[in-house]
Nucleic acid binder design. Sequence first.
DNA 1: AACTCCTGTAACGATATGGTTACGCATTAT
DNA 2: ATAATGCGTAACCATATCGTTACAGGAGTT
Lengths: 126, 126
Amino acid sequence: MRHRSVTYSTARHSEATFQALADPTRRAVLDLLRRGAQPAGQIASAFPVSRPAISKHLRLLRRAHLVREHREGRHRVYQLNPEPLRAVDSWIEQYRQFWTASLNNLKSFVEAEYAREQEADSRKHK
Amino acid sequence: MRHRSVTYSTARHSEATFQALADPTRRAVLDLLRRGAQPAGQIASAFPVSRPAISKHLRLLRRAHLVREHREGRHRVYQLNPEPLRAVDSWIEQYRQFWTASLNNLKSFVEAEYAREQEADSRKHK
DNA sequence: AACTCCTGTAACGATATGGTTACGCATTAT
DNA sequence: ATAATGCGTAACCATATCGTTACAGGAGTT
């Protein structure tokens, strides 16, 4: 029988953002845009893939709201929008406490937790 | 002519980690393990997919070093290892300044940056 | 008006991803 | 010894992903 874990819903948040960050080229595009807004072609020239490939990455980043685009003459200037990264940041935040604790402490804590749960479970088995 | 952007190399770091986090089920598994170590079957029972599917997710998480596994009787207990998340955190860190600044300030900053670059570039065009 | 520049989209192909069922192998229970 | 439990892997399938080349269309240039 399945539980449909409660934790699932929290992980569903910011799906598009995590998805967008999965690709190294897209992360590099964001890194590039930190230095300032640029037109699409100039962005593409910084990478070893074709311009249409970058165009598709930009579309994905646009749909994840990680970049904003506006026309300027015949250029399309792309600008970083870091807002969605806040969600990623707050997800990570929940893990920060784990690496501030020493690994030894973590290990014993986790093992104790499991031992406790196992004991609570032991009634269901024989 | 291609530049092979310098920023690329920084984005290549922690490739496996970003990859692992791209899937909502895997993020939910990590969220679940924050509450304590658990055997594989118990993890699987929290999700609406088959046990082998979870087994494959766990393998990927193992290879990304986001979880550790050890045998305990006939169970295989999985334990969170948040260490690789530090790399993600420090990547995000570089963006934190952008959302602490007001969006208006950011906008003008970025636009000024682009204007400056465009001017520097204008000698190459006609 | 004709031409060039900049960029998005379409169509296609190779590979990756995420799911399923069937199976094998240890470990514990009977 | 035999059966049952727990879990990883293999084989397979559908769809997604990321790249390419060819093409189209709007904005400046001549």
